[in-house]
Computed example of a mutant assay.
Amino acid sequence: MNFQNGWSEELVQNYFSHDYRDRGMTKWQGYYLSDHTSALNKAKHAAARTFPARPQQSQERIGALLANAFANNHPVAIQLASISPDGLFGPDIMGMVRGYTETDVVIGSDEINFETIRNVIVL
């Protein structure tokens, strides 16, 4: 079969089989409009929620709250003292108190050092 411009089907097939390089998604990147980019950035910032600092509790208070939650089988929310480089606290670690070691409390499958705990809320 010959095309109107003089190319044969064999020539076209040979080009696509051996010479043509598909750029994949690269060719579509120019189609993002500023509105799309703005909406994506807003969604990204909404997902990065901030968590307010709760008051620093004493080690005795933290120990008493965790012991009470363990004895009465109540879930807890633990805020760690560590902060991000932006000065923000991360999300609470939530779960059931499963047990203790000398230096750690076991929440679910996580072991948390007592010294890294800022605040505990019994839920």
Rank of each mutant, 00 (worst) to 15 (best):
D19V: 15
P75Q: 06
A71M: 00
L11R: 15
E10W: 07
T50A: 09
G24S: 12
G6Q: 05
G87D: 01
G24W: 02
P52R: 05
S82I: 07
H18V: 11
T116D: 09
T37H: 00
L88H: 13
E111P: 00
A43D: 08
G95I: 07
T37D: 00
T103Q: 10
P52V: 05
G99E: 03
W28C: 06
A69I: 09
K44N: 04
A48M: 10
F3P: 06
R21N: 12
G87A: 01
P85A: 06
W28Y: 14
P91I: 02
Q56E: 15
T101K: 01
I121Q: 11
A48R: 09
F51D: 11
I117Q: 05
F16M: 00
T103Y: 05
Y31K: 07
I62D: 02
F89H: 15
R98I: 11
P52I: 04
P91R: 10
A71S: 04
S8W: 00
V105I: 11
D86P: 00
D110F: 10
V120H: 03
F114A: 08
V120R: 02
P55N: 09
T116F: 00
G87E: 01
K27F: 07
R23Y: 05
R21Y: 07
H18Q: 12
L80F: 01
A47I: 06
A69V: 08
L123M: 10
W28M: 12
D22Y: 09
A67H: 07
A53R: 11
R23S: 12
E9D: 14
F3H: 12
S34V: 06
A53T: 08
G63D: 10
N113H: 14
N5Q: 03
Q57F: 05
W7R: 15
T116M: 05
Y15D: 06
R61Y: 02
Q59H: 05
H74Q: 14
Y15H: 15
T50I: 14
A81H: 03
R98D: 05
L80V: 13
A46C: 00
I62G: 04
V97E: 01
G99H: 03
E102H: 06
I107N: 02
E102S: 12
A71Q: 03
V120G: 05
